[in-house]
Nucleic acid binder design. Structure first.
Length: 493
RNA sequence: CGGGGUGUAGCUCAGCUUGGUAGAGCGCUACGUUCGGGACGUAGAGGCCGAAGGUUCGAAUCCUUUCACCCCGACCA
């Protein structure tokens, strides 16, 4: 657990999280997650446990995204976790990048082994093993092939919320774990144009969630040929800039053309009476977005939740001096909580018997947007004392409850806007134009440099490969904003 | 999969070189005084030292094997 630094010893301002971002960004990141009680590593290799507070954030993200997906005319469905190995073989061309890191189910029963303990029963070996889905392209494609007969069956737009398993070599909480949560959309269309429009339309859904809900500035663009999904004609992405200057791929939306429909046999009879292969898209957004939210907004005192998706938007902390006054303060707090609920503000009344300062720090580390403190003083005056998490203790002020109730919704909105503006300013400030590869090399000497933007043709020069290796950088995307003429290059997660 | 590191209390770690039967801080429990940006005192609970073998009168400590995790690479639909 991160302990507060003793200011007297260190001579630095006291921070709730150690180390600080500047001292050690990766360790700071882990500490923030722990201090906010969002998640922990599980006993299972490479997997993590979403604790209630972290899962509540995911649920809020999910709720918002799900609504936008449905608005786009997509229906939710659910397909099996286990996929017959033979299905993966169907897309032999993509197996290279696809099936290597799968978990495989080979037995259907356990029995007592010779050393005690349970082992897979040799007599219960499956004739055809299953893989635990690393993505559901094949099994959904198999269904689509049966469901699509006529052009009247198109477009067919399906989405599923589920877990995925990829046996990743190196894992990091939220950012890359062996098992993770996501949604995967799989749409099929009659024409190439529709599929292309769709890939961009779903990317726009993701942009909306990142910017409007998570308050994270995005850089929409297209992946370069080297970076795109092997089975895709075109891959679109939102690249995000984290506080350490590294890129995080926020999501992907693929125009798969007819590559998958041909290998999975998704075809339809057109108005012309002829058979045609469908044009498909796939698009995914994962629980990595939580990692992005942390690395974008959190500071050296812990998490900062964007109000729109914050599990709690307000924490109410009672400050009680003696048992005699406790009931009155608690009633006052609970009444406030109830009033906030009626105006649609998610409030948490911390009635636990922890000490008031500990409750305050818990609220800070969890990143609750607004902290309210209520003691006998406030009760007597019909007031409350509030502090904004993003501005810290200097923003502490005492106002009437009525004023608070009247101003809290717009206040949360403006905090949301402030966070996005801050993220946008930061992102823009770390993008630097470079004219040539020598300038690029100079730029990346700084560990936290950010992104270099240059003519796309520069990365085709042989010397680029060397820079790429020397600094562990990759082309992140061809931003739409530059009409695909320029490329952003940076370090990434 | 290559290179390095670590497994001892819920957490972070000391002890291991020079074998002698378990330690600290934080956290937790109880009581008292406290309580508005991280309180303090007193008294407690809590560990077959990652696992399996071996050496020894005796192993957290030495040897062998094995498993897991972390960091740096490679990988990352």
């Amino acid at each position: 657990m991160a302990q507060p630094q003793k200011a007297a010893q260190s001579g630095k301002p006291k921070t709730a999280i150690t180390p600080t971002r500047e001292e050690n960004f990766p360790e700071w990141y882990q500490s923030v997650i722990k201090a906010a009680d969002m998640a922990e590593n599980s006993p299972v290799r490479g997997c993590m446990t979403f604790k209630p507070y972290g899962y509540a954030l995911w649920e809020n993200i999910q709720r918002s995204m799900d609504s936008l997906i449905k608005d786009a005319g997509v229906q939710n469905a659910y397909f099996p976790l286990l996929i017959p190995v033979s299905y993966l073989s169907k897309e032999a061309e993509h197996v290279e990048g696809f099936a290597k890191e799968c978990a495989i189910v080979t037995h259907h029963r356990l029995e007592k082994g010779p050393k005690g303990g349970l082992i897979p029963a040799p007599s219960a070996e499956l004739e055809e093993p299953f893989v635990i889905r690393p993505t559901s392209e094949t099994i959904i494609g198999e269904a689509m092939a049966r469901w699509v007969q006529s052009y009247r069956d198109l477009p067919l737009k399906l989405n599923q919320w589920c877990n995925i398993m990829r046996w990743e070599m190196r894992t990091r909480m939220f950012l890359r774990t062996a098992e993770f949560l996501w949604q995967e959309g799989h749409n099929a269309f009659a024409t190439a144009d529709e599929a292309q429009d769709d890939a961009l339309k779903m990317l726009e859904v993701y942009r909306s969630v990142y910017e409007n809900d998570l308050a994270i500035a995005t850089i929409p663009g297209e992946k370069t040929a080297d970076e795109r999904f092997p089975g895709a004609d075109r891959t679109f992405t939102l690249e995000l800039m984290m506080q350490d200057g590294k890129a995080l791929q926020g999501c992907t939306s693929h125009n798969l053309g007819q590559n998958f429909s041909k290998s999975l046999n998704i075809k339809y009879q057109g108005e012309d009476g002829q058979e045609h292969f469908a044009h498909t898209t796939s698009w995914g957004f994962t629980s990595r977005s939580i990692g992005a939210t942390i690395m974008t907004h959190a500071d050296d005192d812990g998490m900062i939740m964007p109000p729109r998706v914050a599990p709690y938007q307000v924490t109410i902390i009672p400050v009680v001096r003696d048992e005699a006054g406790k009931a009155g303060v608690f009633d006052y707090c609970d009444t406030l909580r109830a009033r906030l609920k009626t105006i649609g503000v998610r409030a948490h009344f911390d009635a636990s018997d922890a000490r008031a300062p500990d409750k305050m720090w818990a609220s800070i580390k969890k990143g609750v947007p607004v902290r309210v403190e209520i003691g006998q003083r406030e009760v007597d005056e019909g007031q409350l004392t509030m502090t904004r998490r993003d501005l810290g203790k200097d923003s502490k002020k005492t106002i009437s409850v009525d004023e608070f109730i009247g101003t809290i919704p717009p206040l949360l909105d403006s905090m949301q806007a402030d966070l996005l503006a801050r993220s946008r300013t930061f992102t823009d400030s770390r993008i630097h134009d470079v004219r040539d590869l020598a300038a690029m090399r100079d730029f990346f000497v700084a560990e936290t440099a950010g992104f270099a933007r240059c003519e796309a043709s520069l990365t085709a020069q042989p010397e680029f490969e060397k820079i790429r290796k020397d600094f562990s950088i990759t082309p992140r995307c061809l931003p739409f904003a530059d009409s695909g003429q320029k490329v952003l290059v940076g370090r990434s997660y």
